[in-house]
Design a protein around this nucleic acid. Structure first.
Lengths: 344, 344
DNA sequence: TTGAAAGCGCTAACAC
DNA sequence: GTGTTAGCGCTTTCAA
């Protein structure tokens, strides 16, 4: 028995749903021919093509990618999981990544994990239910179940923002532990004896902070004070962090290493509002080298990571897998660079 | 003749794809029962449910939402088009919107239009091919083709960030023209005679700038200088804008209205680096009331728009349409509020 | 160059 | 409570 259409077409304003069959009927060809005209016009005679295109124009036909994906088991969908969209550090590379993928016909299904592995696991599962052709994850720490799901899906996966010895599949990022150490060396070279760190709630940021502190001590630094802002980075959090530092019993630090430029910016504002000179009274190092770092006064010393390349390489690695099956090595180290400016 | 599987299962590491039929076979029930167990467990006996769940666990089965969507013509997908993700003003409300929709089982397919109507039209078409259950657009200006496509799709649509007399369907935002006027009145009340505007490339920002300038003059202001930064808002752009203003032949303005807090922040940095006092030498008004506005020194006067409510209301309006068919009025005016702080 | 037939993996309707 | 049947709108394969 035929199934009933629930939709009251007149009421919704949508005519009967237009399918390839409808278009074909109008153009005097079968549904398959319409499919061909869309996927490979060279397989269809010019005249037929013309009539089909006309019918598409008239009807406003939009192909049903859902049906296409089901039939072909290629969804042209790539899903991405990032910790936070409001953090420009992540959103900027998502933009690059998306642009690259979109240029090749892929759409991006994006979700935020909020830095929560459990949330990530749940999202991986829902995302996989859309049968994406590939997937991007931020970071290299995922629950066992998450790994299992990903492996079972049998699709290319790229993990970004970090480096791993045992990537799920592909990996594009840099070594956070190394970055922390490099900043410690940098600070020691400038003769700083006492340091402070200001760190947001982000596992990778904490890893940088730890290696910074260890190395700073190992290289003869006298002491390091750590402040955990206990939340996302922001200017306000940076201000409060410096205030907390200066209010400690025996405050003393000549350089502050912040886990992001935003925090460093807050520290800078607080310092100047207290009449401190930067870098005279306090040297400042950020992380991420966001565009505003060079526009601050004084310009902010920071650690540059090429986020644009990160997005491009992640897309490139995935596309290589998607298109030429084989493809390049699984792990790309982007490196980092300390950009020395007036704040140190 | 049965179709061949191209995939070499052993090589990809993915076993034969698990379907509801596979799970059913393992649990000793038919495929439909598995479907029921997932969509409405109360329709299945406890014992059967247990066996099905076990089979799902063992196989790592992830339901195919694509097939589900095709069969039910409900995709549980909502697509959203925003001008830019790296602009926190947009990304922050996307976050709220997504969270709300996700709580009800909808996933969000997100794309950036880059403020380009042609790009938007192309994206609307590809997005519609995924057969979303609803769609969110930023702004109220769309190409004729875009409107036609949207209307033809017969799905709920919400336009945000602006108000319209003739919304496609739903609309949540505020009156930009009014906001510009309100700021002009505010500036005049403080006795400012000469003003400047600094505006990023955003149609809505320009609309605010125009009404500001008109009203400022209408209320007896002597003169307004306009700077168009010709690109996205940034601290650097703000600095350069003030520099350009001050370098003009007869520079004179006692208050600057910026199209975003970010620009205002840049203006503030440039002013202070030139030794100017804020608000003594120059009063400053931003737009958007981003979280850092209150953390600047001096704290920044700005125009607050409740972006969280914007996201919530957009989701709420859509969900109402999606779930109870009828639902509330089509246009929600969120209003705005000038937050007076130390920079004026 | 075109068409017919057979699915893709699920949901909806109906029967038992 | 469970199974059967018939699609959803495409792509793939094969035949003409």
């Amino acid at each position: 028995m035929p199934r009933m259409r629930e939709k009251d077409d007149a009421a919704t304003g949508a005519g009967r749903r237009v399918t390839m069959a409808t278009v074909g009927r109008m153009a005097g060809v079968s549904q398959v021919t319409v499919s061909r005209a869309l996927s490979d016009p060279s397989k269809v005679s010019p005249e037929t093509l013309r009539r089909i295109r006309e019918a598409i124009e008239v009807t406003g036909f939009v192909p049903n990618a859902i049906a296409g994906a089901l039939a072909s088991s290629r969804s042209k969908l790539v899903t991405a999981l990032v910790p936070s969209l409001t953090n420009i550090v992540y959103s900027s590379f998502v933009t690059t990544f998306s642009d690259r993928m979109r240029a090749r016909g892929y759409q991006i299904l994006l979700s935020e994990t909020g830095f929560d592995p459990a949330e990530e696991e749940a999202l991986i599962s829902t995302h996989l239910s859309r049968r994406p052709d590939a997937m991007l994850l931020t970071g290299i720490h995922h629950s066992a179940m998450a790994r299992r799901l990903l492996l079972g899906a049998g699709i290319p996966v790229v993990e970004v923002w970090d480096l791993s010895d045992s990537p799920i599949d592909l990996c594009v990022g840099f070594n956070h532990a190394e970055a922390g150490r490099a900043v410690a060396d940098f600070a020691r070279e400038f003769g700083h004896d006492t340091a402070a760190t200001v760190t947001a709630s982000d596992e990778r940021a904490h890893r940088r902070q730890r290696t910074f502190s260890e190395r700073f001590a190992a290289r003869g630094g006298r002491r390091v004070e750590d402040v955990d802002v206990g939340g996302p980075a922001s200017i306000g959090a940076g201000r409060r962090a410096l205030a907390a530092l200066l209010d400690r019993p025996s405050p003393s630090c000549s350089v502050v290493f912040c886990s992001s430029d935003l925090l460093a910016h807050g520290v800078m504002i607080e310092a100047r509002s207290r009449g401190m000179d930067i870098p005279g009274d306090l040297a400042l190092i950020g992380f991420g080298d966001q565009d505003f770092a060079q526009d601050l006064d004084p310009a902010l010393t920071s650690v540059r990571v090429d986020r644009t390349r990160l997005g491009k390489d992640a897309a490139g690695a995935l596309l290589a897998r998607l298109e030429h099956a084989g493809a390049a090595g699984p792990v790309i180290d982007l490196g980092f660079e300390i950009v020395h400016r007036a704040s140190t």
